[in-house]
Write a protein that binds this DNA or RNA. Structure first.
Length: 256
DNA sequence: ATGGCGCCACATTGGCGA
């Protein structure tokens, strides 16, 4: 089984990229973030023509998440139960017996911003919900754009980014809280090339200079981590014409 | 110190992303 996550920064603009990647990689599950379109504009027909089911939660202009899958998704959950947040950044579904959670974690903008306080609050609410989800599902994958660099080695220039949003101690502590729920950072199950990132700034030749961050993640419960054979980031997508600033990340599991 | 790029919308500039 191939399980993937990709912040596509507008599904309207990036639909050809997504369809091309589905055809090329044939993932079993693809979690998407930053759809930037409302539900009536979701390209359901094109996704179905590609052989995929889609469940989604979008809004106009910003945010929005979806889960595409070859098998039928069940028990679809939109938003964090009990957390009345108008921003569409959470969707979960059960696919082939695996609970899949797709997050678009708040960016936070800057540490002195109200948006940063919202990010920390959101992370706290998400943690409480995940505690429950993890206890309910032996096979669970928590994926998405977390907007957190877990460690300095996930940052192209740790000194430049020190203390900045995406790299603060409080955000990294939230990431560790999720790991302490029993989830494993699948990327680090394997030896990885140094300076491997999932996002690169559009500006200043960020990709060409590999000025990136690893902020997109796939966390696996122990029952899934045991079955994980390979985790990789598809940098080739970042080289394409009119790319997303994020590349897809893939976890391959030894599952029928 | 700022902007660089890209996408979006009550658009020809500002909000937001990371």
């Amino acid at each position: 089984m191939k399980l993937a996550t990709w912040n596509i920064n507008s599904l309207k603009i990036r639909l050809p990229h997504v369809l091309g990647w589905l055809a090329e990689q044939r993932p079993d599950v693809l979690c998407l973030q930053e759809l930037k379109l409302d539900d009536p504009h979701f390209p359901t027909a094109a996704i179905e023509d590609a052989g995929y089911h889609a469940v989604f939660s979008g809004q106009k202009t910003y945010n929005g998440v979806a889960i595409l899958s070859r098998s039928t998704p069940t028990d679809v959950q939109i938003g964090i139960p009990g957390y009345d947040d108008p921003v569409r950044r959470v969707i979960a579904a059960t696919i082939d017996g695996i609970r899949v959670v797709c997050f678009y974690v708040p960016n936070g903008q800057s540490v002195d911003s109200d948006k940063y306080q919202y990010k920390l609050q959101w992370l706290s609410r998400a943690t409480e919900w995940l505690r429950d989800e993890v206890s309910r599902h032996e096979r669970i994958a928590v994926t998405g754009d977390f907007n957190i660099t877990p460690e300095d080695r996930d940052v192209h220039d740790p000194e430049l980014w020190r203390g900045q949003v995406l790299c603060t101690d409080a955000e990294r502590a939230a990431f560790r809280n999720w790991v302490e729920l029993g989830l494993v950072d699948s990327f680090r199950l394997f030896d990885q090339p140094e300076r491997t990132f999932s996002w690169w700034d559009y500006r200043m030749l960020g990709f060409q200079k590999n000025h990136g961050l690893r902020i997109d993640h796939i966390l696996l419960s122990p029952a899934l981590a045991r079955l994980c054979e390979r985790v990789w980031i598809d940098r080739a997508q970042r080289k394409k014409t009119q790319p997303s600033d994020h590349a897809p990340m893939v976890a391959e599991l030894r599952l029928p």
